[in-house]
């Protein structure tokens, strides 16, 4: 289909969204991601029966945690698509990218950079 979508996204393939744990979602932010999208199969169509439903509950909990630690739960989202919905996939990437652009960089990334900068400056003064 050769659909265009923003190059800001790094795709990580998993056999099933059931593999995606909360810890993976949180670590993505620790490593500097500004947002995370989980794309699973349509509900009721999971090859492993409930993988996408597990992912749904984990995304929900990750959102709650992100809200409480000051990043905002809206930085993570889950979508359910079938393999024939490439067009919708590209749209979602665009929509989510725009949303993240509006939100700005993750405060973790900003704060980490700042901490590094002040740390370096401290060294100089010392």
């Amino acid at each position: 289909m050769r659909l265009q979508y923003p190059p800001t996204v790094r795709i990580i393939e998993v056999p099933c969204t059931g593999k995606v744990d909360i810890i993976h979602l949180l670590q993505a932010f620790e490593y500097g991601a500004d947002g995370v999208i989980v794309v699973g199969c349509m509900e009721g169509d999971c090859h492993y029966q409930k993988g996408n439903l597990y992912a749904k509950t984990r995304v929900k909990r990750a959102k709650e945690i992100l809200d409480k630690v000051g990043l905002g739960g809206e930085r993570v989202a889950m979508f359910n698509l079938s393999s024939g919905m490439g067009g919708r996939f590209a749209e979602i990437i665009k929509e989510m990218t725009n949303k993240i652009l509006e939100l700005g960089p993750s405060p973790v990334r900003g704060a980490a950079a700042k901490a590094k900068a002040t740390g370096a400056a401290g060294e100089v003064t010392a």
């Binding site: 810890i23 949180l26 670590q27 932010f29 620790e30 945690i65 992100l66 409480k68 630690v69 000051g70 990043l71 993750s106 405060p107 973790v108 704060a111 980490a112 700042k114 901490a115």
Partner: peptide, 11 residues
Amino acid sequence: AALRLYFTQAG
């Protein structure tokens, strides 16, 4: 991970 995110964003 949650605590690290919290502390990092808080600077």
